[in-house]
Amino acid sequence: MSKFRNKDKGELPAISTASLPDIVFMLLFFFMVATVMRDSSLMIENNLPSADQVEKLKKDRTVFIYGGKPSEQYKQFGTEPRIQFNDAFIGVSDVGPSVRQAIYELNEDLQSKVVIGLKVDKETNAGLVSDIKQELRKENALKVMYIANTKTED
C-alpha cells in the first residue's frame, strides 16, 4: 500500500519550463530573419503622396532613389529638394552611374527585371522627378515605381 501513497496527496506537479528557451529561440530566429536593418538613414523629408491604384513592390529587384527637401539636421544642404541615393546626396548627373552600380550588385537573373523605386516627397516639384527619369532612360532602367501610400477609398 505504501507504494502508492504519494498519489493521494493530489498536488499538481510543476510544469516544466525547460522547453521555454527553445520556444523563445524559435521566435527569436524568426524575427532575426525577418528583420531588415535599414542601411541608410534618410537625410530628407519623405512624406509620400497617396494613391489608390497601387501595386505591390518586389523588394528583391528594387533600387531606391529618394528625393525631397533636406530635413532639419541637414539644413546646411539648403532648402531646395535634393536626391538621396543610399546615404549620400547626389546630383542629377550622378544618378546614372549610381543606378548602374546598384543594378550591377543585384542578383544576376534579376538585373534585367530591375525596378527603380522613387520615394519622393510630395512637396517636391515634379521637375526633379523628370530629371531623374531622364537619367534612368539613359541607363535603360525603364521600369519605375512611384512609391506612394495607399489611399483609403471613402
Binding site: Q53, E55, R137, K143, V144, M145, Y146, A148, N149
Partner: peptide
C-alpha cells in the same frame, strides 16, 4: 527593430531613348 516593409506604388514604364 523589425519593420515589415510594405512599399506600394504606381508601376510605370519609361520610353526608351
Amino acid at each position: 527593430t523589425t519593420t515589415i516593409e510594405k512599399d506600394k506604388g504606381l508601376l510605370r514604364s519609361l520610353p526608351p531613348i
